[in-house]
Design a protein around this nucleic acid. Structure first.
Lengths: 244, 244, 244, 244
DNA sequence: TATGAATGAGACTTCATTCAT
DNA sequence: AATGAATGAAGTCTCATTCAT
């Protein structure tokens, strides 16, 4: 898997050129940054949408945070709706293609692949700017079906089937317990969603030395330990304990 | 646990008296229903908020759906904000007290208690009107911190610590594998959240004969099988407890 | 002049039967007070109109202060506008007839008559409930021309010409200095208006031991001393001082 | 006293640039007049407030009269209340400082100074736009205490004490009759107030060739003649006439 | 390309008035 | 006669979008 390719899981690829602005090349003092403008606007919009929601964010605020005038927004985007759509569009831009391909072609114990993919996923989940996109989509989807559609078409609709297939072949190959592959995907990903929303929506964080610390690695550890142990094929069905 | 007590888990207690109204007579015009009005309005508002979001729902729409005029809404609620707050307030009204108490006082293998509570939780999760509330809170929390606060104070803030304690004593008693109790709560509940949001936000349902079927029981089955097996203490340490 | 006749100058004749209500006669405990209702409503309305202005006073407030329901107001008055009109109408009811007649028929030094009328006028000006009416009219006249009309037709339009005539005959008879009679009326009455508005609008009261004391008698004393001395016919025109 | 300084008595300083606008060119459409807009709006608002009262004037009317759209009002004022406050604020802007200082430092017969100030005061009282402000304040004070406060702090609260002091030193210096200085201020100013309100509220004007003529000079003449004669120190107490 | 003044549809909220009870 | 729930017109204020400069 190519780690050097930026944002290949399509969750986010912020330009991150804030510091580079007047950077390397010629860089005249008042250089126009035509090409950067849309990205700066999207960055500003993302912050605000996450913070206050789409409807409560004014176009002027986006402009102000991006350092341009209200009218300038309309030079780059035909409407406010177009901004949020472009936002999600940009984030899922380079897409998850490579990873899903890798998952789809894998044959063997799913746990082995999942363990390999772990650092990548961990990195994604730990980056607030990347997490912002699905959180935004979840929140605004009802009023912006297009967002849900984009995200589904380009991210979830690809990852979910791939993971489902991964579990299915794992079951069929006898590598893991015989479970419903589709449901297993929910089990695999759900805890992270819960973890993030608990913190984001309700401010409920795990106990930690550092305030606001999500302790993502601990979640990974706990979750994968449980899941991987649970996935172990039953060596002797008669011995299986029945709880409750 | 008293199943006859309505809505004791505080997730929702809709009046459900739409048909009852003033009893058996001849449907008394459209006046003098002071008692029922607030609930009718909240029902209407819930539908609309879930469907289109708070900001996109007009007060007049709420009124129209409840069969009254715009002004009537303000006879019962001082503002539009008050409506959504009352909505969540009503839903968490009778509260989760009993269940959390039961969880908190339990001693033994957590899996046994969780299995017992399963039907109750399953019923909750399967009722769209009950699920609507947390979905609403998740969506509107950033613009209505009060909602998040109510839900945290009355529901999550009680359930989460109780479950954490449940796992903790399970670990300490040697009934289950030594995992981080807080993270285990995310693992326990996350899959349901993921399942519901996948369907709600992206329209991604598990394959099923019936369209729109969430197949909650299958999720339960898969999730608990994996989780319970995963929780099994490591057989090696000879210390293995006897479940059930 | 008959001092026993109440409110014959038409500035106000509040019922003042609040205490007498359950008074003298049979007085059953829950006696309906049909006839008193309108007056009670007007009393309540007057208080509120003076306090907050007509537009800012709600019909329900009037009703509440009068101890009845909102709907009851409409049993006695066809509209909110009708209330304020009835208010002024009632106040100018018994009218200024007698006094104006007396003024109109007087012949001689105006100062003599004015001195005689002083106690009556002083009583009027010192009663807040009576003063409330002209203050109300002044304030609401632009939006309720009818009020101004009533007050002009029944009070000012009678008093002003009478006083003008009084001064005119005083001048013609050589009793007082040759001044413009119409303007003299402004000079006669203006200081009281100024005094009252200064206190009412700006809270500017004369220095006094008692806070909120208008010290009306002192104003009378000062004003009449100056005016009466000023009215003295010039004994010797050559002696007249030239100031500035 | 510097007559060339505009509006130094703080009663009004309308811009009066209606015709000037952007200078002599071709009337630049209806845009880009940021500078003038607030004053235009205030002018429009003043007219309407005086005509119909604050509560009965719609923001859209103010806008229309100023030749802009409803929303434009909110570019310059945060609320409708702010408009009326700015109105009074503007009017009392440059303030009465100079005049009050002059009054306060004067020593001698008050009548001499008052006679000198007469043209100034006459000019103020004769200008409808200036008179509009106190009339507005009187009317709206109960619902907008801030207005009364501004006007009291900046105008009346300065002029009244100054005039009181003027009379007091006049009495102490033996220049005028021994009267209560505070009450004398009411006597001095009241007739003008009465005159103006009589015309404004009730449409009662002095007889004149020109309809709507206030005949202010005649009022001045009559009032000052009476007042100044009345203020003359009693040359021989025994000779004082006792009327009534 | 960029600005920001201006627009005006539309939302929330108020409250005089009605009317079934 | 009295109530107070209900109505809906009307008003204040917001903000996405336009466009002259």
């Amino acid at each position: 898997m190519s780690e050097e390719k930026p944002a290949e899981d399509g969750v986010g690829n912020r330009t991150g050129n804030e510091a580079a602005d007047e950077g390397g090349e010629a860089a005249p003092k008042f250089r126009r940054r035509k090409e950067a403008r849309p990205d700066e606007l999207l960055d500003a919009a993302l912050d605000l949408f996450v913070e206050k929601g789409f409807d409560r964010t004014k176009v002027e605020e986006i402009a102000r945070r991006a350092g341009v005038s209200k009218g300038a927004v309309y030079l780059y985007f035909p409407s406010k709706d177009a901004v949020i759509e472009a936002l999600v569009d940009r984030a899922v831009g380079t897409l998850v293609g490579e990873v899903t391909e890798r998952i789809r072609h894998y044959r063997g114990d799913p746990r082995v692949l999942l363990r390999q993919l772990m650092p990548l996923f961990l990195a994604r989940v730990s980056d607030p700017r990347i997490l912002a996109i699905p959180k935004l989509v979840i929140r605004e989807a009802p009023s912006h079906p297009k967002l849900a559609q984009i995200y589904r078409d380009r991210v979830i609709g690809r990852v979910e089937p791939a993971l489902t297939a991964l579990f299915r072949q794992g079951v069929e190959g006898g590598y893991i317990r015989a479970i419903d592959p589709q449901m297993a995907v929910r089990v695999l990903l759900g805890p992270f969603l819960m973890h993030v929303l608990l913190a984001d929506v309700f401010g409920i964080y795990p106990e930690s030395d550092r305030p606001g610390d999500l302790r993502i690695p601990e979640l990974f550890e706990t979750h994968l330990t449980l899941l991987f142990a649970g996935l172990e094929p039953d060596p002797d069905p008669r011995k299986e304990p029945t709880h409750g």
